[in-house]
Design a protein around this nucleic acid. Sequence first.
DNA 1: CAAAATACGTAACATAAGATACAGCGCCCC
DNA 2: GGGGCGCTGTATCTTATGTTACGTATTTTG
Lengths: 274, 274
Amino acid sequence: MISSIAELISDRIGAMPAGERRAAQTLIANYPLTGLKTVAEFSAAAGVSSPTILRFVARLGFQNYPEFQSALQDELAAQLQSPASRTLNPGSTGGAVSPMLEATLDNLRETFRHLTDKQLADIAARLAERRGKTFLIGGRFTDPLARYMAAHLAIIQPDVYHLAGQESIWRDRLIDMGKRDVLVIFDIRRYQESLVRFAEKAHQRGVQIILFTDQWLSPIARFARHVIAGRTAVPSAWDSSAALFVVAETLIGAVTRQLEAAGAKRIRDLESLR
Amino acid sequence: MISSIAELISDRIGAMPAGERRAAQTLIANYPLTGLKTVAEFSAAAGVSSPTILRFVARLGFQNYPEFQSALQDELAAQLQSPASRTLNPGSTGGAVSPMLEATLDNLRETFRHLTDKQLADIAARLAERRGKTFLIGGRFTDPLARYMAAHLAIIQPDVYHLAGQESIWRDRLIDMGKRDVLVIFDIRRYQESLVRFAEKAHQRGVQIILFTDQWLSPIARFARHVIAGRTAVPSAWDSSAALFVVAETLIGAVTRQLEAAGAKRIRDLESLR
DNA sequence: CAAAATACGTAACATAAGATACAGCGCCCC
DNA sequence: GGGGCGCTGTATCTTATGTTACGTATTTTG
């Protein structure tokens, strides 16, 4: 079975005329980048004319050049999103557990690779900024993450609220929200209508939204000031929220560090209350 | 110093208008593929108009769109040729992020290293066994994990209950618990007195306890049938529950697989209820 | 060795892509 | 509340990209 275009090429390269073969070799040589450039550039790199390139992709079975490029891009997307393929682990971890663990480790690495220090620092700074209130809410499966984050933030600073219960309840809380406030939303597929509506209304009131979502971006991204896109794919019937969980923990740590001075006093006060 | 376009973006994303920021977030979310597509496709993915995309790349310092794409391709070429450089993002190694990530990755590996497939399989089998009820409860910071697990398990099987609210409430639920039932407890330092008491009473009633705890083992371990000890140490003011979270997800996946036949029907029934 | 078939490139064409001008709108500041 | 600024989208235009037609070169075969 032929799965990648590279395989397809090496499968048929024998039955190609000289010019097309040069095209094939050039493409393979630094795959798949040459194929993503324009026909003119491709042809120049291969030292043949444009029509030869087009005949080449036609021979591979594509209707036209854009279709060929799309196929390459899809392949590249798959490759970039599941870095598992590049870490070929030769039996180092053989159990039935490891697929799940490995996928999660990859998701973590991949999620943080798309996340710069500056982004996290900005978000942490916004959360640490003690001007307005902080609200947290999540979807069906992600609401526990909102709770987890709220449980920590509420200790180191005042005015942290987790929005729970029925939609009507938190919808009414909108009235307390304004420009100075922050709303942290967790929303991964399948995105919840009610959350989107809520986010939109909050946005209209000038609330700054920090969104935790998956790589396909919840529609809430439209309204969000900051977006954290975590990888969720694992070999399971469910999506994994582990990457978002770790980002949340990282943020909690960062905020705590920023509030060190004020926070330490607050924690001491809390202790004395027990 | 700014070496990659991704860094450049996150450096300037703060100073961008809303539309362009959406473009930036969309690009980062699955970098760099969106940037290799046409302006029209990019704009559609981001939910903005084409000119906004062009203004976005102009703001990044590129003269025109093709130049921007070339830069992305060059970057991608460099990345594909030296896979090692992917993991070491020179800008972020010095930052505050990676210590946290690295520690979490270590915790995950370490946690699973002490966890055999058989252990997990046994626990999953016990959870999938549909003789009695399943109760879940957690401590101050770990209760969200109990909720997360409950949210999933409740979908694939009946009689799954998360114990929330005040101590007196769940203490009274003890009366419904018996030998056939399972109690999943999350408890990490500082271990909660109330949970220990609850676990002891449940144990006396013959309830099988599955305990998620840290490597120092909650006192509840005395009463537990199964103990999962996760690593929690991270360079932060707080302990990390990420390892326990991932174990929970792994178990959820395993239970789902075991209940595939029965669970599939149940999920279908649930869908039809909406 | 000759004739035919195939391959290749040049050049003209059509199309789709990127760029720009302009008007509407919202937002912020005064 | 009013004026100004800046952001965004629609519509138009221009560019360059992919495509095709055709003539020449090259190879293959009888």
